[in-house]
Design a binder for these strands. Structure first.
Lengths: 238, 238
DNA sequence: CCCGATATGTGACTGGCATCACAAGGAGCG
DNA sequence: CGCTCCTTGTGATGCCAGTCACATATCGGG
């Protein structure tokens, strides 16, 4: 099956390639089948906005393919990106469960596909499948942890360079020799990086220069080579 | 029944004065009775640390009386207070549910009392009482919202004065005539206020001077009088 | 392959806030 | 009552990062 934007549509959760790894994808067969019934699938082009911060929650989106950025903005235009979501992630869960407005805006960064599950159907599903409700609670507390990481970064990390180092480390694979250069595909603009660490485009640009001069970093097209992980770690304080 | 520190002990959840309002306090009778069995009550003096960020979670604390501050610190000593908890609040829920280290330290700000529920007992209780699990999920998503508020404050609110205005507004009662001065009991030091809005003691002191000069604010002993709420609101950007 | 739009590099300037320093209130306690 | 410790007020100083401005590079679509 072929969709626009050159994607293969995944229309059955039972045979989803990311089924094993994620919240709604690793459940008893009966539950997955039920989920498969109440979801609706759609394909989205780049820059599609799935939902906007402040909207009443209509339901959750399970991202099947593509990346999405979650961000929140102030009225004067300042923006912070709180998360880059990938396939398997569930978007809008907190708002949907608590029936409060979406706390972020979700926007596709590349073409992708998502399953939508309406709020009512989800809540009914959770009431029927009590074991999944606890899983949802666990997912929510994972989200909470991520949020706390962000709070620490924003509140305890004073300098942009430290935040930048932190971000680079979060990108570099955990495993692998610490002293061996790590290669990372970088798909964000300097502007977006700035929105992730709470600084300006210009500062990010200067940070790249600095870090390259200090042999911490190297770029090759859109590939980023992290040359000195231990040195980056030494820059952290939290 | 009398306890040290001049507090009355509340040893039965069934007759707890805050029973109606909060997570574990507004449940079917059978559930409350079960909770009452698995909890253990203790009284804590000021400055007691209930748990420390990074520790493996032992269980949750239900605060029955007194206030506690939740905060996280970096290794170089910088601290941010993320929440002031009051009677009825459940502390350590996220860590306990997800079995990850406590994400904050909880410290009593005044003498108080708390019920402790061990992790194993709590999880068993939740499995038996499925309806409560969903309530827990709701509570977790409320926590998540609070965390997001904090992220917005830290990330989108640039100037200390704006953050300070935000804090003052969060203290002033929602109801009541907007133009009428609101009286608030202030129990925090400037240092602690600084830790709440991510600035220094000195800056907080100067903010008080400024705001008083601008007729926004007035102090009378430890009572704080917010004189011009609309003007404070106009200072916000998010 | 070309062109407009978008992204990036870099200099100059400036202001707000952290930092340091010290003085002066205020509370608790013997 | 007077001591000490904690908290608060306020000046002087310096620096980092935001802002503005403009040049250059790179991307993507026709």
């Amino acid at each position: 099956m072929r969709a626009p934007y050159g994607l293969n549509i995944i229309d059955n959760c039972l045979i989803c390639p990311v089924r094993e790894e994620h919240l709604f994808c690793n459940l008893p067969l009966a539950a997955v089948q039920k989920l498969n019934e109440i979801k609706s699938t759609a394909v989205y082009p780049k820059s599609t906005v799935l939902f906007i911060e402040g909207q009443q929650p209509r339901g959750v989106f399970v991202l099947c393919a593509g990346k999405a950025k979650l961000f929140t903005s102030s009225s004067d235009g300042k923006t912070i990106i709180t998360k880059i979501s990938e396939a398997g992630d569930v978007l809008g869960l907190n708002a949907t469960i608590s029936n409060r407005p979406y706390e972020v805006t979700a926007e596709m960064m590349e073409p992708g596909q998502a399953n939508f599950i309406a709020r009512d159907a989800l809540l009914e599903f959770l009431r029927e499948h009590g074991e999944v409700a606890l899983r949802v609670a666990e997912q929510l507390s994972r989200n909470y942890y991520t949020a706390y990481e962000e709070i620490r970064t924003l509140g305890l990390t004073s300098s942009p360079s430290e935040k930048f180092a932190k971000l680079l480390l979060s990108w570099s694979p955990d495993r692998g020799n610490a002293n061996e250069p790590a290669h990372v595909k970088m798909t964000l603009t300097h502007e977006e990086i700035g929105e992730m660490i709470g600084t300006t485009r210009e500062t990010v640009s200067r940070l790249f220069s600095d870090f390259k001069k200090k042999q911490l970093l190297q770029t090759k097209g859109s590939t980023l080579i992290i040359r000195n992980k231990p040195a980056l770690e030494k820059m952290l304080n939290s």
